[in-house]
Design a binder for these strands. Structure first.
Lengths: 110, 110
DNA sequence: TTATTATATCGCAAATATACGATAGAATTT
DNA sequence: AAATTCTATCGTATATTTGCGATATAATAA
């Protein structure tokens, strides 16, 4: 952006935005689904499933890690990723609040 | 991106990504909150609350409209926006599925 | 030790997103 | 009709994201 205005918003607003941002690309949705299907997951296997280069998948994984939607451990040469369900639970609450808030305030209008 | 690979992912994956993308900026989270607080909302009032120029807020509103998170009607000179709760309900389900799916598959690992 | 394998990072190009001021357009007021 | 008000759009600058190939790094295998 011309100038970054994100600091001007609240921490909560930024946290929700960051969480949403991590899910805001179909490749990352696909990766999350793929990891969720199993109990553990190796990056290489994901690469085979996705229509993207290995380096690109690695970048997406890095973003998911940064947003704490997944956790990763190193197992020899391989990297194992799995869902960080704590983060999902955290935002599940946030989302549910949001849903109910919006629902209850929308009887008339538009 | 170098070349757009989004078509290579499923419709569902893209829909969830688009929904998340609409929420992926703190300004849009703030706008949604502000609209949800009321029964209807005029763009001008939002501009006063946000640390952004009127044209920028208008752009964010346009994105929220595109993603169908809000609905808009014209009332004379003014534009009225309110939450499109149908979309939220739609993705509430998607998210809840996602949450439970991830939860149930995460006993061991990492 | 050397080769192989798995993954991460670097460097770059192209595409998108963000933000603003200026301005257009449409409805209302004077 | 002219001025005012509200919102959308245009043009533009800059920042960020996406994607890939090449390469680095680290562990295992030969």
């Amino acid at each position: 952006m011309a100038l970054n205005k994100k600091d001007e918003f609240s921490k909560k607003e930024n946290e929700l935005a960051d969480f949403a941002n991590a899910i805001s690309h179909p490749a990352r949705v696909a990766i999350l689904k793929e990891i969720a299907k199993r109990e553990s997951c190796i990056c290489g296997e994901i690469v085979e499933v996705l229509p993207l280069a290995q380096s690109t998948v690695s970048q997406h994984l890095k973003e998911l890690l940064k947003a704490e939607l997944i956790k990763g451990t190193v197992d020899g040469v391989k990297s194992c990723y799995c869902i960080n369900y704590k983060t999902f639970e955290k935002f599940e609450k946030t989302f549910n609040e949001f849903f109910t808030k919006t629902n209850s305030n929308n009887p008339k209008c538009c």
